[in-house]
Amino acid sequence: MSPLAAGYPIGAAASVEQLTADPHALLARLRAAEPVSWLPALNGWLVTRHDLALQVMKDAATFTVDDPRFSTAQVVGPSMLSLDADEHARHRAPFSRQFRPREIEDRFGDFVRAECGRLVDGFVATGRAELRRALAGPLAVAVMADALGLDSTDAKRVLAWYDAIVSAVAEISAGHAPDQPDPLGAQAFGELRAHIEGSAAKPSLLAEAAQALALPEVVSNAAVLMFGGIETTEGMIANLLLHLLTNPSQMDVVRADPSRIPDAVEESLRLEPAAAVVDRYATRDVELAGATIARGDLVTVSLTAANRDPALFDRPDDFDLLRPNLRHQLAFARGPHFCLGIDLARLETRVAVETVLDRLPGLALTDAATPAGLVFRKPDAVHVRWDAP
C-alpha cells in the first residue's frame, strides 16, 4: 500500500464494483471518517460531504474540468462540459438562450405530453411493460432529437450513437480505457458529426449555435447535450418510478395530490441522482478538509454521497417528498457547470409520471430492481403491471 493510500484506509479498500452496485454504506463511512479520501480504485480523491462538494464545484479556478484526461472530452472533443472560464462561457452561451426556464414549458410542454401519450398508447392494452425502455428512454431520445433539430433522424440511430458515446465515457471513468477511447464511441461520434454537418443549414438550435461557434464546436456541444439529455433524463424517470412504486405511502401522497409530483422529482434526485459523480482536476496544490491535494490530481465529487449527508438531510436514506429542504440536492451540480437542461429534464420526468399514474390504474412493480452504475445510476429495468382496459 502506498503511503498516500495508507492515510485513507476506507478509501484504499474501496472498489469500483462497490461504487457501482450499492455504494451507499461505503459512501456513508467515507463521509463520516474520510470526507476527502484517496481511492486507488479511481486513482483520485473522492469528496463525499455536501459542503465540500459545493466548495469544489463552485471553485472552477482551483478545481477545473479543463484537463486532457476529462473523460467526455476524450470522446467528443472540447465542449461547454470540459472547458472553463471564458471558453466555457463562449461554448455555453449560444445554447443557454434556448433553455431559459420560463420558455421550457412553451417550447416543449405540448411535445412532451404528446410523446408520453403516444408511447403509453403503444403498450397500455397489454397490462404489462418495462417502463425504462418502453417510456423513459424513448421519451428522452425523442425530446433531445426535437431540441437539436434531429427529429427527422431515426430514433434507433440516435439511441445507438448515444449508447456508444456513453459506453466510451463510462469505460474511461472506470479506468478501463485511460489512453484510448473505445473505437465504437469514436465511430458513433463520427456518424453524429457527419449527420449534423450535413443538416447544419436547416433552422434549428444547432444552426443558431453555428452562428457563434465553429462547426466542430457545435458538434461537440450537441453530443454533450444529447449525452446528458438522454442519459440523465432516462435515469431520472426510471429512478422516480422505482422510488414511488417501492414506497406506497409516498405514492399515495402524489395520487391524492398530483401537485406534489415536482417534489417527488426533487426527492428522487436527492436519494439517487442519475449522474452520480462529477470530475474535476486540481489546478494547484490545495488542502481540503485536511487532505493535501496535489496539482493535477483528479478530484471526484460524489453527488450521491453529498445528497445523503445527514448534516443537511434528516433521515437521509428515506424517500420523503414532504422533506422541507429537498431542493438543496445537488443532482444537477452547482457552479459554472450547473446543468443546462435542468428544467427540461424536470418537465419530462414530471409529465412521464403524471401520464403513467393517469393512464395505468393499479400500477405495481412485478420484479425487484435497484439503481446501479458508477457514473450514471438507474435500474436495469422497471417491470410493472396494471389493470388493462
Results as ranks from 00 to 15, higher is better:
Glu103Cys: 08
Leu42Val: 08
Arg29Tyr: 01
Ala194Gln: 12
Leu54Asp: 05
Gln18Pro: 05
Phe376Ser: 11
Ser173Tyr: 01
Phe70Asp: 12
Ser2Arg: 10
Ala207Lys: 11
Glu348Asp: 09
Ala89Leu: 15
Pro138Met: 07
Asn307Phe: 02
Leu215Gln: 11
Arg270Ile: 11
Lys378Leu: 05
Asp151Ser: 15
Ala14Asn: 07
Ala14Ser: 14
Val16His: 03
Glu105Tyr: 03
Arg90Asp: 04
Arg280Asn: 01
Leu135Asn: 03
Arg29Ala: 14
Gly335Gln: 10
Val254Pro: 13
Leu27Gly: 00
Cys116Ser: 11
Ala32Gly: 07
Pro216Gly: 06
Ala291Trp: 02
Ser37Phe: 02
Val158Ile: 15
Pro310Arg: 00
Asp84Trp: 08
Pro262Glu: 10
Met1Ala: 14
Ala289Pro: 08
Leu213Asp: 10
Ala311Glu: 14
Ser268Cys: 08
Ser167Leu: 13
Leu365His: 06
Arg132Lys: 15
Leu81Thr: 13
Ser96Thr: 15
Asn247Trp: 02
Ala207His: 15
Thr62Arg: 13
Pro389Cys: 02
Trp38Pro: 10
Trp386Asp: 05
Leu213Met: 07
Asp358Lys: 13
Arg92Trp: 05
Lys156Pro: 04
Gly296Ile: 06
Leu271Met: 08
Pro262Cys: 08
Val301Phe: 03
Pro248Leu: 03
Gly335Ile: 09
Gln329Asp: 04
Ser259Val: 07
Arg69Glu: 13
Asp86Gly: 06
Ala223Pro: 07
Pro203Cys: 07
Gly137Thr: 14
Asp387Tyr: 09
Glu234Ser: 08
Glu354Thr: 10
Ala89Trp: 09
Val219His: 00
Asn43Ala: 15
Arg69Phe: 09
Met57Glu: 12
Arg334Lys: 12
Ser199Ile: 05
Phe70His: 15
Pro273Asp: 08
Ala140Leu: 04
Pro183His: 08
Ala291Phe: 00
Ser302Asp: 04
Pro35Arg: 01
Leu269Lys: 05
Phe123Cys: 00
Gln187Asp: 14
Ile342Arg: 13
Thr62Ser: 13
Ala170Met: 10
Asp146Thr: 12
Ala381Phe: 03
Val301Met: 01
Phe99Cys: 00
Leu244Phe: 06
Val124Asp: 05
Ala331Pro: 01
Leu213Lys: 09
Ala368Met: 01
Leu81Val: 14
Met80Phe: 14
Gly149Cys: 06
Phe332Glu: 10
Ser2Cys: 03
Arg69Ile: 10
